[in-house]
Design a protein around this nucleic acid. Sequence first.
DNA 1: GATAAATGTCATTCT
DNA 2: ACAGAATGACATTTA
Length: 600
Amino acid sequence: MRRTETRFTEGLIQLTVLLSLIGVRLDLGFYSNSPFESTTVEIGGGPDSAFIHTPLHRYRDIAAGLHPKCPELEDEFSTRRLLNEVRALGSPVRFPTRLSAWLVHLVPTGTDTDTGPEETRGNDGDGDTSDGTRGNETGGHPDVVKDEEEGISDDSPTQLTRSSALEQEVLLSNGVQLPPGPGAEVHSQWPDFLSDFNEFESLIAQHVPDMDPISYNVSLHDATVSNGGDYRPDPPRGGGHTTPRQTPAFFSLESTNSSNRDTPRAPGGAAVALPLFSSLGNGSHSRVGGYLDEAVFEQINLLGLEGLASVEEQVLNAVDGRLDAPWLEDLDSDSGLSLETESRSPTSASMSSSESFCEGGAMGYSSEVESLFSNGGACASSCYDWPRQSLNKIIWHDHNYSSRPPEESKPQSRTRYPKAIKQEVMSEDETGPEEPSRDERRLQALGLPFSAPEIVNMPMEDFLELLEGQDLSTSEATLLRDVRRRGKNKLAAQNCRKRKLHAILGLQAEVEELIAQRDALLRERTCTSKALSATGECFKTLSNAVLRQLRDEHGQTLSPQQYTLHCGTNGHLAVRPRTNAVKMNTTRAKTTKRKKDKKR
DNA sequence: GATAAATGTCATTCT
DNA sequence: ACAGAATGACATTTA
């Protein structure tokens, strides 16, 4: 019977928490790993009994984030603090790493291909020198490094100018010749592409660090580059290799029917290379290194095939999403989402109970909850309207529930309960001394020279001496024992209620925190999705532009409807017929679309 | 007087 | 064995 009651009541608390979450699972699992588990009284013996029968004061201690007897518990909160620090590092939406990639080489078709440019041969050589030059890619470009560090300024006009200048410099060093031709209008679009490519850069950046900035063999035997634009000066041929500061990484553009990738130049084909000037591998790796993996390339390939909105719109959406992302502020600010709850709770916990109570107790959880409402929990508070007033009203902090003299405990109780406050004011200031309790009256009736508080609080030894030395009758001794027992039980009941209240508040605050966290994660996901979509659109546009520059063996342009650029997981760019890709990706696209529809 | 909240008390379990 | 803490349930007090 007793066990059932305990299970029921504590189960109600859990149920309340779970219901409050509405979809958010409050995982109290870490409690089970807590050192408290060993001290938990396992009455039922069932698999969940360790949790169910955990006394409320243990929740209190856990919620406070610190337990004087179990400092190991801090490990669990240190994990949260670490998470907070990681999240404070920034948003995955804005990738600080600078990366520029563009088509540098226009290979004339026909006889010119036989005397192919130096970089075609040099591509192989670049691989030899890449290791030594790679580390200087960004080191030689303080501006780029600065962009990496600042991260947000890389789409500024000056950045584009710098990219163009750097591009020319590399071209000169590579001896790339760009004959003027009718493709000028296409080349003039490169700065725009590069600008739009900002989002895409970071995606490639995730893979390039592991790849030597070598020039991959150009095996585009079926593809050539059309005549280039005239916006770029003609660098001297045979310029040799790249300078140490600007080691380009060349992605191979290869048609899928190319049998030999390693062939420097396939017969009848032309070489084309995409130099990748990257600030990668310089220690200033993207701060979101873990966000992008191989799957991103698949996403890009998918996105590139899907009909998305215009590039400008996508980019603007991404930018807007970044600028309007309140979750960033949440992460940066000391919001309710802030995991500083753990860092502050110990502070309040370490505070003596007398401090927290005598000074009004408006700290610790109260401030945390207020911060939840004022900062982080905008959505949370709107969706889950916790009664703020009630929260503020009943949040108090007594991390020391042990027995104390009633002279100390009574004011606490009066502070907590308005009725008691009035009672105190009336009794002491207006109506004189407080009315004696029933036990007090009984003691007075017996003529015993001890007050009830004295009997309750005196040491057991003194109490026993009192019983023996006063020559009391059995009933009198029983009365004294009862008075002492009731008095102690009264204090215990008060402490128990405080603990229970505090535990509920702790769980309530935890729920608030989790709701705010969920809200932030949802916003983060939205922003990331926008950024990914924009990146895919950029990639699509850039791919189309690249394909328009290419020619097959018949001198025909590669139609973007027929071919597509494919990002390999190793960083390779390959030209592939679209039919296979469409077939292969259609299923994935449908799956993705179904998922999106489900979310809507 | 009814009601809800606060508080006290009892029974029980556990340390 | 006993004191005392903890706590659910119920009783009492109070506004």
